[in-house]
């Protein structure tokens, strides 16, 4: 079955997320409130039109190095919890088949939140397991 996926780039790699879990796309505000004790990939708390939620640096989470260039924030909602995902660039919405779950990307620092690798035409993308990503970060 074909699904709609949102493709983003993080450290020159393409990642895809189910578009129905993405509530909106916004840019990282200049003011981010640090959250004491949070893991390093959590940038902090941001205020988007009166709603507060934590933002995770996806590059840091997946590659272990801060994504300094990243400015776009995908606001994802899973299990009623809201998390911002900081990415380099938002590319496109594509239809994609179920990913081949057995294939893992070779150079991932953290593959626990990767759902699999799929492709749309010529494009090869890594699909993220968003609910798992949210669960692993939010209490």
């Amino acid at each position: 079955m074909s699904r709609q996926l949102l493709v983003v780039s993080v450290a020159e790699t393409l990642y895809a997320l189910p578009s129905e879990l993405v509530r909106e796309i916004t840019t990282l505000p200049s003011q981010v409130t640090r959250l004491p004790g949070a893991e390093p990939s959590i940038r902090g708390l941001i205020n988007v039109r009166g709603q507060l939620f934590p933002v995770m640096d996806l590059c840091h989470r997946l590659r272990g190095v801060p994504g300094n260039e990243a400015v776009d924030v995908l606001v994802v909602v899973s299990d009623g919890k809201t998390l911002g995902l900081l990415v380099d660039d938002v590319r496109d919405v594509i239809p994609m088949d179920e990913p081949a779950a057995s294939v893992t990307a070779p150079d991932e620092a953290d593959t626990s939140v990767v759902r699999g690798v799929g492709h749309s035409g010529e494009m090869v993308v890594i699909e993220l397991d968003v609910p798992k990503l949210v669960r692993s970060s939010l209490a």
């Binding site: 004491p36 949070a38 709603q51 507060l52 939620f53 934590p54 809201t82 970060s137 939010l138 209490a139």
Partner: peptide
């Protein structure tokens, strides 16, 4: 006062 979804590992007391 606004609530937000707490992040794992965050210091208690907030």
């Amino acid at each position: 006062v606004k609530s937000f979804d707490l992040v794992r590992g965050m210091s208690a007391g907030f």
